[in-house]
Amino acid sequence: MVKDLSFTAAPGVVTGFLGPNGAGKTTTMRMLLGLTRPTSGTITIGGRPLARLDNPAREVGALLDARATHPQRTAFHHLLAFAQTMGLGRGRVDEVLGLVGLSQAAGRRTGEFSLGMNQRLGIATALLGDPGVLVLDEPLNGLDPEGIRWARTFLRDLAREGRTVLFSSHLMSEMELTADDLVVVGQGRLIAESSLDEFVRANTVQAVTVRAAAPDELAHALTRAGAGVSVQPDDALLVTGTDTATVGRIAAAQGIALVELARVRESLEDVFLRLTDEVTEYEGQPA
């Protein structure tokens, strides 16, 4: 269920569409493409509904489900059938196969493809009409590390050519090195919309980890100075609400020798989990 969701994906950048499973990412993308009808409201692309465009695939390229291919059909014929709807032929099919590195597999049936190869085929399908807008649902899902690196560079290159690239994922780690902008949803509602850097700055908690010869004494001194302190199992202190310089000064003033002093940053994965925690629909119970 998606309610009152409104966001902008700008040309020239990769916009990551992030949310836990069941948050409404796929539903939103399907509505965008006219496959699922919203109960109210309209969806326009460049001011016109998708169905009114003469050759919608020249405006919007989509990857909905990489597995959605006929297993008996070859990659080449899969692409050819879609190219022909726009009056394009074998030439364009060979081009997009080359772009995604599937030229060697053109004659193979998609039923023999790995999920990663199907993702590449899906991206090739989206690119057939050379559209300015790309809507990709979980394009990195199922790719091996080499494939993920390829896809990241590829998506960023497509954006750099001036295209609008919107891609979804339920994994923060997939966003970190790929997206410029971030749209975070949970239970069909917008949680955050900003650039990735801003998102990190606004939502990550800065903390300091410190190890000292006299941890209890230091903990007291830091608490007196107004910092939040928690003692880790290995006697290291996790200090919040301050920075490394202040911690060092306080330790020096008390004459406590430090063994280690470092800045730690909450990982994006942690931030994402914390933000979506209240709105996660399906959650495992602790055993």
């Binding site: 399907r30 493409l33 006219g34 169905a51 465009l53 919608p56 959605a68 291919t69 006929h70 879609f82």
Partner: peptide, 17 residues
């Protein structure tokens, strides 16, 4: 075959009518 594989979604992106 198009409904079973889900390919119908892609077909309709290319041909919304």
């Amino acid at each position: 075959a198009e409904h079973g594989t889900g390919m119908i979604g892609t077909s309709l992106v290319f041909v919304p009518s």
